[in-house]
Amino acid sequence: MPHRTRIKICGLTRPSDLHCAAAAGADAVGFVLYPPSVRALTPAQAGALARLLPPFVTPVLLYVNPSAAEVQAGLAEVPHALLQFHGDESPAQCQALAQGRPYLRAARIPLSADAARFDLLEYAELHAGAQALLLDAQVPGYGGAGHSFDWTAFDWSHPALNASSRLVLSGGLTPANVADGVRLLRPWAVDVSSGVEAARGIKCPDLIARFVAAVRLADTALAAPQPLTSPPSCPPPPPPP
């Protein structure tokens, strides 16, 4: 079957934004439980939004260097959430905080030419316990700044990366560039926050709809049969009788 790229809309703060994301076809929505963020929610606020979700849309709780008590407070409000660790957590800390639950681990990749110095293969091996790696740009404030890393810095065909089932592309995605990211990496999912906002923390319905449409068009293009580079040769005519 053709691959369908999953879509996560992150940094939701209002019921209207949540309804818009779900209606557009988002597979997951992210709630930021990191107080310094402009998109930060309390556990109670995240729980109130999560209870508005329709079936089969996954809530994700985003943490940055949390304590065990902070993770438990979020899970008490959103018990069926997927966890996302976006700070400097070690593999052992991620597994201890998750307590057997599936989680995403953010890989914060340096910008510009420094991206190639980031050993993504080693990082993927270190965090083999994560359900997926979320690839984001390394910026002050742990993401949400609208910056992309160099997508050409890595060999996405390497078996250890296994892009189609374990990588989530994030960082600076917009309706204008997400199709390029899908075609290049062919990730399991894409994750957007600032790229679909009218203002910091306020999502734009039109941008969300355009983002989802761009991903779906990219999937359709990848699933289409590729044209032959040259016409097939015809068999020679039969000899005359």
Rank of each mutant, 00 (worst) to 15 (best):
123 Y>E: 15
222 L>P: 00
224 A>H: 08
108 R>V: 05
197 E>L: 02
54 P>R: 11
104 L>D: 02
25 G>W: 07
111 L>H: 13
169 L>Q: 00
75 L>M: 01
200 R>A: 14
75 L>K: 01
35 P>E: 13
86 H>K: 01
68 A>W: 05
185 L>F: 08
131 Q>A: 15
201 G>A: 11
90 S>A: 03
41 L>S: 00
179 A>Q: 02
78 V>W: 00
28 A>I: 04
50 A>T: 10
157 S>H: 14
155 D>N: 15
51 R>L: 13
60 V>T: 09
17 D>K: 00
27 D>K: 10
118 F>N: 08
132 A>M: 14
51 R>I: 09
69 A>I: 03
236 P>H: 06
118 F>M: 12
63 Y>W: 06
101 R>E: 08
179 A>T: 02
75 L>P: 00
116 A>H: 11
73 A>L: 07
190 V>Q: 00
64 V>F: 10
125 E>P: 03
235 P>K: 08
60 V>P: 02
231 P>W: 07
36 P>G: 03
163 A>M: 11
214 A>W: 00
164 S>T: 14
21 A>L: 07
49 L>Y: 06
106 A>I: 10
18 L>Q: 06
109 I>T: 05
202 I>D: 07
113 A>E: 15
161 L>D: 02
182 V>M: 08
144 G>R: 06
130 A>G: 14
10 C>G: 13
